[in-house]
Design a protein around this nucleic acid. Structure first.
Length: 478
DNA sequence: TTTAGGG
DNA sequence: CCCTAAA
């Protein structure tokens, strides 16, 4: 987490490829923890009748998150100062702890949509040594640490030394480590849950280890195990080749111990995932699916206020998030691209005759038009005629990120590039890798050569395109 | 808000 | 794709 950014949002950023993460309490008492990760549709971990709380611990420089039975679904952020004043601290790792009262509680991960390329997600921007995650029991007061029934999402560790100490861990934790919950979906996604882990902690000293404690008391050394701490993702969601019955595993070795040398999810996939993050347009541009609406980092515009007012934490953030929920997707996408830390979004201000103009520094990432899109555009043109870009948008690009203006621009370019006098286009077949099929080009020419129809503005405008278009279905030709 | 144009 | 005027 960079200091100048919004904390909660960036905590979510830090969790492997998840872009956003938030808890949401529903009317029917079931709360859900949402991950808005680097794929189209977020999935949700549902069926948790509790509320997540997040809280930054200044002393430890980490995030403490826990869940209580009865809560308001607030997000607790307090004591930022201790973290902010820590100059060397660049990242605040996030660990999610889930505690629950019922014995056989499990997380039901429910995917709205297939996520075919959900690779191993790496937590590659983590600064070691600032993790501290404790589990607060619903039964105990919020101040007490310690719990009887709890689950923690533990990192997947790609260190073979983890394998060594896993035995040790097993001996310590015993059968308490029991969950490896498969997702019911055919994707075979799994969440690794370790039950009865009392704390997971990265040491702040030079030992550079991550500690897992199976029971808690004040002298943690009695109960904890340590193993080298090698940049694991905190929230481990990974694909398996098969769903497997995978119910419970009582052996620690069964979960998430992998050797990097034998793992297929090695460097290449890290790179690939990262590149995908860089290339993918912001979610709010994809389409307005529900999961994208809550954007905590919309509140990041005023990070300084968090600095100034500690008490602002809870409610203000809540308010921000609620406000963000209502905010319609707007063209502030650049602020959404906290992918590279060195790129800071700054609106460019230039003054001209005393007046100030703002513009976005970065333009929307270029999304090349696919052939299908072009065909849809041509269809739309033939159906509605020129100038009805919103109609085309609503009919053929409803769920697309292309706006009516985009569509119009594309049409303009299509006409420009395909309907020129043939003298200007010399050896245009050299790049026929992305050249349009001839039938499409012909249709573009036909439609473009249609005599200029009276450009009736608005929907009342009479469209003579039907006359020019033999493909027009009869019912449309009234 | 939507379109048309210019860049 | 962006920006702006105009409808």
């Amino acid at each position: 987490v960079k200091k100048d950014e919004h904390y909660i949002a960036d905590l979510a950023y830090g969790s492997s490829d998840a872009r956003h993460m938030w808890a949401e309490s529903k009317e029917d008492q079931a709360s859900a923890l949402y991950f808005d990760a680097n794929f189209e549709d977020a999935f949700k971990i549902d069926d948790i009748s509790s509320v997540f709380h997040y809280e930054l611990l200044a002393k430890n420089g980490g995030l403490n998150s826990y869940m209580t039975e009865e809560g308001k679904g607030e997000i607790l952020c307090s004591d930022f100062d201790g973290i902010l004043n820590e100059d060397k601290l660049t990242n605040i790792p996030l660990a999610v702890s889930i505690s629950h009262a019922s014995e056989d509680h499990y997380l039901d991960v429910d995917f709205d949509k297939k996520v075919p390329d959900l690779d191993c997600k790496f937590y590659d921007e983590l600064s070691v040594g600032n993790l501290r995650s404790e589990i607060h029991s619903p039964e105990t007061s919020n101040e007490e640490v310690g719990v009887s029934e709890s689950s923690v999402l533990v990192p997947r560790c790609f260190n073979d030394q983890f394998g060594k100490t896993a035995k040790e861990m097993h001996g310590d934790l015993g059968s308490k480590c029991r969950y490896q919950m498969p997702v019911e979906d055919n994707m075979g996604l799994k969440c690794s849950l370790v039950s009865d882990v009392k704390y997971v902690q990265a040491t702040n000293d030079d030992r550079n280890t991550l500690e897992i404690g199976s029971s808690f008391n004040d002298d943690r050394d009695n109960t904890h195990v340590s193993f080298p701490y090698v940049k694991p993702p905190y929230i481990s969601i990974y694909t398996h080749d098969e769903v497997g019955s995978a119910s419970q595993c009582t052996d620690v070795d069964d979960f998430c111990v992998e050797d990097p040398s034998t793992d297929s999810c090695a460097e290449t996939k890290i790179t690939r995932a990262r590149q995908r993050r860089l290339c993918r347009p912001p979610q709010r541009y994809l389409d307005g699916t529900s999961s994208l609406k809550l954007r905590l980092h919309n509140a990041k515009k005023h990070p300084s206020s968090l600095l100034e007012d500690k008490d602002l934490g809870v409610r203000s953030l809540k308010k921000h998030s609620r406000k963000a929920l209502e905010v319609k997707a707007s063209k502030t996408w650049a602020s959404d691209m906290e992918l590279d830390s060195d790129e800071e979004y700054e609106p460019v201000e230039s003054s001209f005759n005393g007046r100030k103009f703002k513009r976005n520094d970065r333009r929307k990432s270029c999304q090349p038009w696919t052939l299908d899109e072009v065909v849809a555009l041509v269809d739309g043109m033939s159906k509605f005629g020129p100038g009805q870009w919103t109609a085309v948008k609503k009919t053929f690009f409803l769920s697309s990120r292309r706006t009516a203006t985009d569509i119009r621009d594309k049409w303009r370019n299509l006409v420009k590039t395909n309907c020129r006098s043939s003298k200007g286009k010399k050896d245009d077949q050299r790049n026929n890798s992305h050249v349009l099929p001839n039938p499409v080009i012909e249709r573009v020419r036909e439609l473009a050569s249609a005599p200029p129809v009276l450009r009736g503005r608005g929907r009342g405008g009479r469209k003579l395109s039907a006359l020019k278009c033999p493909d027009m279905p009869p019912y449309l030709a009234e």
